[in-house]
């Protein structure tokens, strides 16, 4: 981690000074800055907050939204909620995975894409739903998946 990153990490930690129970919020904020939580950040957090590394790992590994390994430039999430499921989400997931040649929860070797299953995005009316970074795509067909991936690779 370079000095600039470290400074940012410290700034984020300072923002929560004096508050109780903020570890999860801190990890989320750090992640939105760094996209994932590297080992050094956990060590640094442990020192600053005086919380054992093991405890931070326990929390970071329990919550799905926290990435403990690097993620791709584009994060693809396929919603596996019930409404999407009955409208063919599994096919969308299988197809996306086979196109990217990775399994769900993995990242392509060139770090271009990460693929993730997500339990419900709350867009149940327009299932199956797939998101690329902040963009939502509803009523996704396999053809659409192909186009979405092509546009970004």
């Amino acid at each position: 981690m370079n000095a600039a990153d470290l400074k940012k990490v410290d700034e984020i930690i300072d923002g929560y000074r004096g508050q109780e129970g903020v570890l999860i919020q801190l990890l989320l904020d750090l992640q939105s800055e760094l996209h994932w939580i590297p080992r050094e950040v956990i060590d640094h957090l442990s020192e600053r907050l005086r919380v054992p590394t093991s405890q931070i790992y326990r929390i970071a590994s329990f919550y799905k939204a926290i990435n403990l390994s690097p993620v791709g430039r584009h994060m693809i999430q396929v919603c596996m909620g019930t409404a999407c499921q009955v409208r063919g989400a599994q096919k969308v997931l299988d197809y996306t995975a086979s196109r990217l040649n990775i399994r769900p929860e993995e990242t392509t070797p060139d770090l271009a894409f990460s693929l993730r299953k997500v339990n419900c995005l709350g867009c149940c009316s327009m299932g199956p739903v797939l998101t690329v970074d902040d963009e939502y795509h509803g009523g996704v067909t396999l053809e659409r998946v192909k186009k979405i991936l092509k546009k970004r690779s």
């Binding site: 909620g81 019930t82 999407c84 709350g122």
Partner: peptide, 8 residues
Amino acid sequence: DEGDPGAF
């Protein structure tokens, strides 16, 4: 924390 898949 509306986690029920299918509820929004």
